[in-house]
Structures are given as C-alpha cells and as structure tokens.
C-alpha cells in the first residue's frame, strides 16, 4: 500500500482554540503537521456545509475547535456549534462518510497541551482509518 498522509482541515475559534494552538507553539510542543488551520472568530461561524465541502474536496478528516461550554467569547456560540456538529455527524453516514472523521473538541487558550494531544490523536486515528473514498454519487 502506498504511504498515506491524511489531509486534515482544522477550524478553530480565534479566542480559545487558535490561542491554545499558539500556546502549543510558544511552549515549543510538537505535533504532526497534517492539519491546516482556518481561523474564524467563533466556532459557531462554521457551517456544516463548510465541512461537507472539505470532505468533498478531499479532506480525510475535519477538526473543529472551540471554547469550553460557557466560555465562548460570544456567550453561547459553541452550544450552537455542538448542536450543528451532532446533527451533521448523524447525516455523514448518509453521505458515506464515517462520523469519526469529524471531530469537535473544546480547547481553551490555556490548553496548548490538549491541542497537541487531540491533534496527534486525531491525525493518528485518520491515518488508521485510511483515506476517505467518496462514492461518485456523493462527491457529485
């Protein structure tokens, strides 16, 4: 089997998860480089359509990071994110995508370590799952 490097799109909110990822950097922690971050102001900016789009365009996994419950910079945006992601996970199977390819985590600005752990864990998990192969019909 040819070598597989998972392609991962990461969405992170500006106030917690992106800051947490910055902290991982400032603390010189190390993790695998497969994820590329798209910073948005709040995790609730992420539309399920963005996630489907990423899968359609070839992402093997999509990661969403937001503030912990009750810590969202915009009061309760992350609760909306939670609801949307839960719902989308149910639908993913219909599209032939394993729901585990989508991961939502709460990572605070102080949790550089947690960011590194979930990043490595997620990348490893996707590596084990192998590339996402969408059916012709689903990627149409």
């Amino acid at each position: 089997m040819e070598h597989f490097e998972p392609k991962i799109v990461c969405f992170a909110c500006n106030w917690c998860t992106s800051a947490g990822a910055d902290l991982a950097g400032t603390s010189r922690m190390e993790y695998q480089p497969n994820g590329i971050m798209i910073r948005v102001m709040c995790s609730s900016r992420i539309d399920p359509q963005h996630i489907l789009w990423a899968f359609k365009k070839g992402a093997d996994g999509v990661f969403i990071g937001g503030c912990h419950p009750d810590d969202c910079h915009y009061i309760d945006g992350n609760y909306n994110t939670l609801r949307r992601i839960k719902l989308l996970k149910k639908l993913l199977t219909d599209f032939g995508i394993e729901p585990e390819r989508l991961r939502l985590e709460w990572v605070s600005a102080a949790e550089g370590k947690k960011f590194v752990m979930v990043m490595d864990d997620f990348i490893e998990q996707i590596r084990n799952m192998g590339p996402l192969r969408l059916s012709q019909e689903a990627s149409a």
Partner: peptide, 15 residues
Amino acid sequence: NIREQCSWVHKDKDK
C-alpha cells in the same frame, strides 16, 4: 501564522 502554528511545532523542515 507560520511560527506558533508551524515552525515552532514541527521539526521536519520539508514538511
């Protein structure tokens, strides 16, 4: 952001 989220967290220069 290619420092905190890239150069500081990876070692393999190519990657």
